[in-house]
Simulated scan of single mutants.
Amino acid sequence: MSKILVIGAGGQLGQCLKIVAERREITEIVFPAEQDANILDEAVLQALLAKEQPAFVINCAAYTAVDKAEDEVELAKAINETGAGYLASACAAIGATLVHISTDFVFEGNAVKLLTEDDEAKPINVYGVTKLDGEKAVAAILPAHFIIRTSWLYSEYANNFVKTMLKLGAERDELNIIADQIGTPTYAIDLANAIYDIIESGQKDYGIYHYSNEGVTSWFDFATAIFDISKTQVKVNPIPGSAYPTKAIRPPFSVMDKSKIKSTFKIKIPYWRDSLIACIAKLN
């Protein structure tokens, strides 16, 4: 397999890529420390890629604090757009292919339909805007790119909804969870496998792809499933998003169509609840 370099190796997806690389016995892969792969330093990125000469670069570095982004607009823009552009330029300089991770939050989410890669991206918060601008920067600079939009990412690593719910469920008797935001959770281990499948395919069908687990759920039903599978005794109340106002508006419906990634790369995608069972078993 061609040499791979992972940017943002310390984050949730970066850690999952490391675990899956070990399982798949992928040895030609580099996970540089953050200071050696600073997404905000173009010279550092150029030097790193020139030294390592990877055939593929996976960009997991992102500003993902959705509510905080409303206040930290410049930082979110620097990491999600400018940094993505720097990395695309560094890839172009050595002829590397970039696998860039994006989000369902590039969509407005007002239509109850499966969102395809061709649907208009119309983000409604700063995070979504900066991620979409990052996609555009990558596409403008580097033809050899795979942009993978994902949603509701969780795993055994870093901070995420599943780990937060398990913590709160152990501490409280009752929780109120939003029931009118609909999407699909994604187990980061499954996403990591899909990324390696794309790289190993050797195909050059560049462009945007959607990847989440199969199925559809709400945050309320997701939380209920977490407590059910982990046998956590806690009362969960469904509430409307309006009862829990956040700084950033969320898309009400962001279920993505995965037909393109499945047909192009022959990828089999697990159902969200099956993957959640696997994750909780690991956490236990």
Rank of each mutant, 00 (worst) to 15 (best):
S275T: 12
I101M: 11
Q181M: 09
L45G: 02
T184V: 01
E120D: 14
P143A: 10
I182Y: 06
L114K: 15
L13A: 13
H145T: 01
P185R: 01
I177Q: 01
L283Q: 04
A47Y: 12
L48D: 02
A139L: 05
A65C: 14
E135Y: 11
D257C: 15
Y187A: 05
P143S: 04
Y157P: 00
A139S: 11
K204L: 00
K204G: 02
K131G: 13
F107D: 08
N59G: 01
I7K: 06
G8P: 09
G95E: 03
K18L: 03
I269T: 07
A179E: 10
M1G: 07
V216D: 03
K136F: 06
I39W: 06
V112C: 02
K282D: 04
D197Y: 06
L98F: 03
F265A: 04
I208H: 06
A170K: 06
I249K: 15
C60G: 00
L13N: 15
V126H: 03
E42V: 12
I198F: 10
G134W: 07
A69N: 07
E156I: 12
K262I: 12
T82G: 00
H145L: 02
E156R: 02
A179R: 07
S275M: 05
E42T: 02
G109P: 06
K258Q: 13
A76C: 12
V73K: 12
I79T: 10
G14F: 08
N160T: 10
T116Y: 13
N80L: 08
A139M: 08
Q12D: 00
D274R: 03
R273A: 09
T64R: 03
Q233W: 00
F105R: 01
Q233E: 11
S212Y: 00
K266L: 13
G183H: 09
N176K: 14
T64S: 12
A76T: 13
N125I: 08
Y154P: 01
N110G: 07
E25H: 14
K77V: 02
H210L: 15
Q53K: 15
S155T: 10
L5S: 08
S242H: 13
R23Y: 15
L142C: 14
K77I: 05
V106G: 11
I199P: 06
K163T: 14
I26V: 09
G109E: 04
V99L: 07
T224E: 12
Q53I: 04
K51C: 11
Y244C: 01
K260P: 09
C60I: 03
P240A: 09
G134A: 11
A47H: 14
K163L: 14
I19K: 06
V106S: 03
D205R: 12
G183W: 12
P54A: 02
I239W: 04
A170T: 10
I79M: 11
D119M: 12
I199K: 13
L175I: 01
F220K: 13
W272C: 07
P251G: 09
N38M: 09
N237K: 14
S275Q: 10
S201C: 05
K18E: 06
V6S: 13
T150F: 07
I269P: 00
K235D: 02
